[in-house]
């Protein structure tokens, strides 16, 4: 097996360029690549388009910020494609002030759009969102006697994802609900940076237990920050 480079978080962050589209794994900071997020915040790369389940959290009262919310606070996103921004007051503030745009996508639709982007589908047909604002501007397609919305695939320049364990080839194993969007994003970006807690030798992960096949992963970063 070809071994993947293990690079520092700063080196990983330097691979993200101004204006890139960026997929970030995690669900309200559970299963987010906190070490790389911190490095990207340090790099200050801006004009990014975020594709993530949510925009982390940011509570103005307590000042507490979690996950990708740290990059939102540094105003690094010109656009966010998320299913939920309810726990991030700064995202709402930026949206209302016109500093960023937010595309709200139903969570299941977001998951399938990312998957479609990764697996070569031209889109997906879903009943979710019919008759709501989500339908606006989209093609409604009848199959048999049922209506569906055509939702288009999503791809990104870079995906930063988080796994529990990797082997040097890049095979990934996730932990519990920290899996969420990570395996889907691993398939849908030109460059996939996997932040992992443990790196073992090729052959040390049972092939039956691999969640994300090695070929999707380009580089590995050792996780230094597990919660943020």
């Amino acid at each position: 097996m070809v071994k993947k480079p293990v690079i520092s978080a700063a080196e990983a962050a330097a691979k993200v360029r101004e204006g890139d589209s960026l997929m970030v794994g995690g669900f309200l900071a559970c299963g987010s690549p906190h070490t790389v997020i911190q490095a990207l915040m340090g790099a200050g790369t801006s004009g990014l388009t975020l594709i993530c389940n949510d925009s982390g959290s940011h509570d103005f009262k307590s000042g507490k910020i979690t996950g990708v919310g740290h990059m939102v606070a540094k105003k690094q996103f010109k656009k966010m494609i998320c299913s939920h921004i309810g726990l991030n007051q700064e995202t709402q503030r930026q949206m209302n002030a016109g500093e960023t745009t937010v595309d709200l996508v139903p969570q299941g639709t977001l998951a399938e759009r990312v998957r479609a982007g990764g697996v070569g589908l031209g889109g997906i047909l879903t009943p979710t969102g019919l008759g709501t604002e989500v339908e606006q501007g989209k093609q409604v397609i009848t199959v048999g006697d049922r209506l569906f919305l055509l939702e288009l695939p999503l791809k990104a320049d870079v995906a930063i994802i988080k796994a529990k364990k990797a082997d040097r080839a890049g095979n990934l194993v996730y932990a519990a609900t920290a899996r969420n969007f990570n395996p889907l994003m691993a398939m849908a970006a030109s460059l996939v940076i996997a932040e992992v807690e443990e790196i073992v030798e090729v052959g040390d992960i049972d092939p039956n237990e691999v969640h994300t096949p090695s070929i999707f992963v380009d580089v590995l970063v050792k996780a230094e920050r597990l919660e943020w």
């Binding site: 309810g86 709200l104 139903p106 969570q107 299941g108």
Partner: peptide, 11 residues
């Protein structure tokens, strides 16, 4: 006023 987003509710 408030736009939390639909999360998984629509699905």
């Amino acid at each position: 006023k408030m736009v939390p987003g639909m999360g998984g509710a629509m699905d």
